[in-house]
Simulated scan of single mutants.
Amino acid sequence: MRISSAPVAAATQTQPTVTVEPITCENYEAFVHLRVAPAQSTYVADNWKSLAQVNLHGPAGKAFGIRTDGTPAGMLLLWDARMDPDEADRADELYVWRLMIDAAQQGRGLGKQAMAWVVEEGRRLGVERVALSHVIANEHAGRFYRSLGFAYTGEIDDGERVMHLPLK
Rank of each mutant, 00 (worst) to 15 (best):
Q53L: 10
L34K: 08
D46Y: 15
Y152Q: 15
S147K: 11
G58K: 05
S5V: 05
K112N: 14
R2A: 10
W48E: 10
M83R: 10
A81H: 02
G159D: 14
E21C: 00
V54Y: 07
I136G: 00
A10G: 14
W97Y: 10
L56N: 08
E155L: 14
Q13R: 06
S41P: 05
A37D: 13
Y95C: 01
K168Q: 10
P7D: 07
K112Y: 14
V8N: 06
Y28C: 07
L56K: 01
A137I: 09
A60V: 07
T153L: 01
T12A: 00
L34R: 12
V44C: 08
E26I: 12
Y152R: 15
D89H: 10
G61E: 14
Y152E: 15
T71N: 10
A30K: 11
R123F: 05
T24L: 11
H140P: 05
T19D: 09
R146P: 08
I156Q: 10
W79D: 03
M75V: 12
S4I: 07
D157V: 14
A91N: 03
R146Y: 14
F150N: 09
W48M: 12
L78A: 03
M100Y: 09
S4D: 12
A52W: 15
I23H: 05
A52S: 13
N55Q: 03
A37S: 13
W117A: 06
A52E: 13
P38S: 10
A6W: 04
I136T: 03
V119G: 04
A11P: 14
N47Y: 13
M75S: 09
M100C: 11
A11F: 06
A151K: 13
V130Y: 05
Y28T: 04
M115P: 10
K168Y: 03
E26F: 14
L77Y: 09
G111R: 10
A141N: 01
G58F: 09
E21T: 04
K168T: 12
P16M: 06
A137Q: 05
V20D: 08
K112A: 15
G61P: 01
Y43L: 01
A9L: 04
T14A: 03
K49D: 08
G154Q: 09
T71E: 13
D89R: 12
L94P: 00
R124T: 07
G70F: 04
P38G: 12
T42A: 08
K112R: 15
V135N: 00
S5N: 07
T153C: 04
R90A: 06
T42G: 02
V20Y: 05
A88N: 08
V130Q: 07
R82D: 00
V54D: 07
T42F: 01
V135S: 00
T17H: 11
P166A: 03
Q53Y: 14
V36W: 05
F150K: 14
L165Q: 02
S133T: 03
M163K: 14
D69G: 15
V96Y: 08
Y28S: 07
H33P: 14
S5K: 13
M115D: 10
